[in-house]
Design a binder for these strands. Structure first.
Lengths: 338, 338
DNA sequence: CTGTTAGCGCGTTCAG
DNA sequence: CTGAACGCGCTAACAG
């Protein structure tokens, strides 16, 4: 059975293609009688308009592109949920592209969007990305885009972030108040603004408490989990005084956890750990892990909302539409005391 | 700056549109000289062919649709990673649709695919879905589809699953060998074949060990986490003899964990828990959680591969292409002993 | 209220 | 080797 098209409906009903088209779009210039006839037959035959013909004609794809590093990660999963939901509300479709944190792949993907495949873009940039010309080319083509979480600062468009500086500050303050004096800071990429902001908050908090940041306690992780654990163990051994760890991303918190156990460092008695993380299962960890949860779902929704406001009203996105959402510091007590 | 099209390239070069088109597709009937000229200009102007015009003409969308319940869940995240990767290898695009486990939404989404928006479909059906007519209509239209994980048995197409029966059996055996005699089985939906298979494996394992399954120890969870915890606590209180819990899905394992702690049941001394789960962080849990990890990434890849084999060679998908992948039972020791 | 006509941008005949 | 012409399926301007 072939897909049904307007022509077939028209023939069947002895009407012209355009009449059928208008009847289906419920145009005011069609009589109620023919509308009913047309719509009924369409339903019977299971007519579905060809979206590509329609896109070609209207120069609208009813599709947005989402470009993210990866999806095997609670943060981006939740964000996608939010995005898909808002897209559906607006009767839009969602194309997903994963960069695997590779700048080259990101460039290839983004460049392709110049084809008109999507009406707008939501992006969280790859860790290594330094050169943003692929994005700026799209801006020249007036394709609306919104960055979320991992944004590039130098773009005049909306960016949805969390209060990375503040929560970096808070997290450190939390460790300091718990008595830590030698806090290691673990981050992933040097190039990501979120990492830098969190680090800045961390350093400022230290200074505000009269401590001098020790560069030796700063560790850049890699993309290899096991190797990260080794690096952290070495860090702990080189600096036995370390009594707190601030992990900028979830995976580094996990590696820290394992590193401490491996070295027999008790958590939280010897070393306290705090981390950015959206894992619900953190509730189960004992010793407890204090986490800073980002409102991932809300970020996805908010970014999508701004994008659609632009797409549907055909207006440019202003940097002023940017938002900084509040993250949520979650302290947990050891459940052993229950 | 408007998107560049063939016509503009042709004008600029004093060539016809068709020549330019052929030059760009590297046709053998175009001289090397003009090919070079055309391709260079295309690169300079950042020409990207309009995918919708192309789709319309070739009757191929170069797009697949992925229909899943949700993505905020490690299993589906990993699966998407696999799918996206294979799609990219085949130069295809990936549209994501979430059903939120709602049969009605699933039907709406799937029905829309009759439009030709996608060349093929990968689906994991919604928990409540009982009526599969929306899928069968697509099959009449000869749109290739592959089910993975949550499959519908009654379809003559490929299905990628894990060895649910076997691992259900194994999981139970594991608890029995650890000394459990009163094992609660927690499942989500009555309608999903994976849940039924796991349960069947569970029951058969019990019987094989000379035990009679007790219906009172069977619990159907809801979509509400907190309520599930309450249900589990009540179950544990009604049946103080329970010394093992087999959670069919991750979220029920988490609720069980919390329920036990809340009631002061020690894990694993009083109650042992085993669960299907893909959470890497399970490594950190202490007391340890024995998990059955599904090869989610591989399932995504395998499902996508079969789909593309059909799409690219234009051949129907045979049920014989189905695969049952092996899941992985991961035992962990308490790290407190380190 | 309905039909005719003309393209959206591309790929593929058919001519030369 | 290149160009002209057609049509994929749909929408919209223009007639009547």
């Amino acid at each position: 059975m072939n897909p049904v098209n307007l022509k077939q409906l028209a023939q069947e009903l002895n009407l012209s293609v355009s009449t059928v088209s208008r009847a289906l779009s419920d145009s005011y210039e069609i009589s109620a009688a023919t509308k009913a006839k047309v719509q009924q037959l369409a339903r019977e035959l299971g007519y579905e308009p060809n979206p590509y013909a329609s896109s070609l004609r209207r120069q609208k794809s009813k599709t947005i592109g989402v470009v993210i590093p990866e999806v095997a990660n609670n943060f981006f999963s939740l964000a996608i949920n939010g995005i898909e939901e808002v897209a559906r509300e607006n009767d839009y479709h969602v194309l997903i592209y994963l960069t695997h944190d590779d700048a080259q792949q990101e460039a290839t993907i983004v460049q392709h969007f110049a084809s008109g495949r999507v009406d707008g873009i939501l992006a969280s940039v790859a860790g290594e990305t330094q050169d943003f010309t692929h994005f700026s080319k799209l801006q020249e083509r007036h394709i609306p885009m919104v960055f979320f979480d991992r944004v590039c600062e130098e773009f005049a468009t909306a960016k949805i972030t969390t209060d990375d500086y503040q929560s970096g500050y808070q997290a450190t303050q939390h460790l300091l108040e718990a008595g830590c004096r030698h806090i290691a800071h673990l981050l992933i990429s040097d190039h990501l603004s979120i990492g830098q902001k969190r680090l800045q908050g961390h350093l400022d908090a230290l200074r505000a408490h009269g401590l001098t940041p020790d560069p030796a306690l700063l560790l850049r992780g890699t993309s290899n989990k096991d190797y990260n654990q080794t690096l952290i163990q070495e860090l702990l051994q080189r600096n036995p005084a370390i009594d707190g760890i601030f992990a900028s991303v979830e995976t580094l918190a996990m590696s820290s956890y394992l590193a401490c156990r491996h070295l027999g460092r008790r958590i939280p008695e010897d070393v306290k750990i705090i981390s950015f993380s959206n894992l619900e299962i953190a509730d189960l960890l004992d010793p407890p892990l204090t986490t800073i949860a980002q409102p991932a779902y809300e970020m996805g929704r908010e970014a999508a909302r701004i994008l659609f406001k632009s797409i549907l009203k055909n207006r440019p996105i202003l940097p002023a539409q940017s938002q900084e959402l509040k993250s949520n510091l979650i302290k947990r007590k050891s459940t052993a005391t229950l």
